[in-house]
């Protein structure tokens, strides 16, 4: 496995809730990333993020790792949950919050 794929693997395995996004939670640079991060912030739990605009290597290689072509991408306990549409749907249905809380509690 290449260095960057190792790096991604280590990131998703060491952060129970991890969002790959464009920009930062304070300043999202894409509407889809902004919506996703707002949902996570609403839960009041700590989560990690990677700004893919600041890390072109991750941006170029994450889609191959996750077999998911677009950003943002939310990982919980090392598993891809989905992008903005799925996060919004799972938030509305009430499925996502308990998953995030359980993961954040370790």
């Amino acid at each position: 496995m290449s260095d960057v794929l190792e790096r991604i693997k280590s990131q998703v395995e060491s952060n129970p809730v991890l969002l790959y996004m464009k920009g930062t939670p304070q300043m999202p640079m894409c509407g889809f990333s902004a919506r996703t991060v707002e949902v996570l912030k609403g839960y009041g739990k700590e989560f990690a993020f990677v700004n893919v605009l600041a890390d072109p290597e991750i941006r170029a290689n994450l889609p191959q790792f996750s077999e998911w072509p677009t950003f943002p991408q939310l990982f919980i306990n090392g598993e891809l949950v989905g992008g903005c549409d799925i996060v919004m749907e799972m938030n509305e249905s009430g499925e996502l919050q308990p998953m995030v809380e359980a993961a954040a509690a370790g």
């Binding site: 640079m29 990333s33 902004a34 919506r35």
Partner: peptide, 11 residues
């Protein structure tokens, strides 16, 4: 369905 979000300029 919900409306799509506004662009934030970084894309």
């Amino acid at each position: 369905v919900d409306a799509s979000p506004k662009c934030r300029g970084g894309t």
